[in-house]
Nucleic acid binder design. Structure first.
Lengths: 222, 222
DNA sequence: TCAAAAGTGTTTGCTATACACCCATGA
DNA sequence: TCATGGGTGTATAGCAAACACTTTTGA
């Protein structure tokens, strides 16, 4: 018995996990990463990537580790959404989940099917399948937090974009996150006042229309 | 051995606690509740009230329970701040703390010294003593969240006040939370546009100055 | 030459801020 | 009568939103 269950406590302890809501922009719309669960419970259902926190691991480190395991990315914006702990949210045992949201730019992702997952897929936020556990609730909280955050801390919009980007691409980020379209002239006037981006002098050519000026962050990222 | 440590798991589990940042307004300034710890670790030091989450208890319920144990109040605004989980934040064992902030009106408090606390005191936010664990960090996060929240969700300002209040008292709430003074005429003009308060028709008399009109929430609280 | 996105200004209304004096009361 | 907070209006500047046409390219 002690062989199989070697960690003993005076009082009952819950397990603690991290779950990740990983956002990206594809085809001008907000997507997030779901995995198809390869093990019970909820085997075969879609769910957020996540896993248990190691006993000496900081919460953001655990989130970072899961992010790397699912996407191959070792950097990317990460922010805590909060703790979710309804007693029956996991049928196995009491599990408190600390949710994080992450933002990554679509051009940098290499998806890895994890050991306990069949498939890993980007799904549009506007059309999500049913998800396991209380992950729907976590996703809603993360979306709220993200749209709050992008309004306050405009710079994180850049996390969705490659190093060089056009103003229209930047506009699409705000439109996707806010879920509404923005007037082009008003947006560009407002973007001029942003102090954290600058023109590169280069142009993006090759499309069947007028070339677009390329911008980048003033402070180098990544 | 099994007698003393009867709860056994295959993997190590952290303990999970809730900690409370309980705000109130006293003498026109923001205060929060601290307890003097009566037991190790940090015996004799000031700390936030809190305790372990029971194995079948929802997180907000645990916070509500702690709030009641410390203040005698069974209602009051409660909102999660987030999870704090540095591996060494508690010297006893790995403890993940889920912090909540609460708002209560000073006129309703009956402080109870808990079983593991010597003293329970209101302390001004502007002049806090050193606190145990990572509670300073939790307090800062809670203050940020509170001032965010009061700007977005104006109605929670009422949580600081008795059922009937004057406009000056309401102004003091915003001033204390924002940490800056507000022009009286601008405030009152803005307050007129609030749809969730109304005049009672009554006046607060008895002070050595002109009586003040009393207001209350349009929707009955408590 | 056509389709498709890039780029560009002005007007209007609302909201935030600055600012100073008289009023009603209790001691 | 005096100290104390209660109560009131106007002017200005800055920001958000509405709104339409010309330009440049690749196919």
């Amino acid at each position: 018995m002690t062989r199989q269950l070697p960690y003993c406590y005076k009082h009952p302890h819950p397990a603690v996990a991290v779950d990740l809501v990983i956002f990206t922009l594809r085809d001008d719309s907000l997507h997030l990463l779901l995995i198809e669960r390869g093990a019970a419970p909820f085997r075969g259902q879609w769910a957020l990537p996540g896993g248990f926190v190691r006993i000496n691991e900081n919460l953001p480190d655990a989130a970072q580790r899961e992010l790397r395991e699912e996407t191959g990315l070792s950097q990317g914006y990460l922010e805590q959404v909060g703790a979710f702990g309804k007693p029956d949210r996991d049928p196995r045992e009491r599990v408190i989940s600390v949710a994080f949201f992450a933002i990554i730019s679509a051009d940098k992702v290499a998806l890895h099917a994890g050991s306990d997952a069949h498939r890993v897929e980007w799904r549009p936020c506007s059309d999500l399948p049913p998800v396991a556990f209380d992950h729907r609730e976590i996703i809603e909280a993360a979306r709220l937090k993200l749209s709050d955050k992008i309004n306050r801390t405009t710079t994180i919009a850049l996390e969705f974009l490659p190093r060089e980007f056009t103003l229209t691409e930047l506009q699409r980020v705000f439109e996707a996150v806010r879920g509404e379209s923005i007037d082009k002239r008003n947006f560009r006037k407002w973007a001029e006042s942003l102090s954290f981006i600058k023109e590169t002098g280069k142009m993006r050519r090759g499309a069947q229309h007028r070339p677009a000026a390329l911008y980048k962050a003033k402070l180098a990222r990544r």
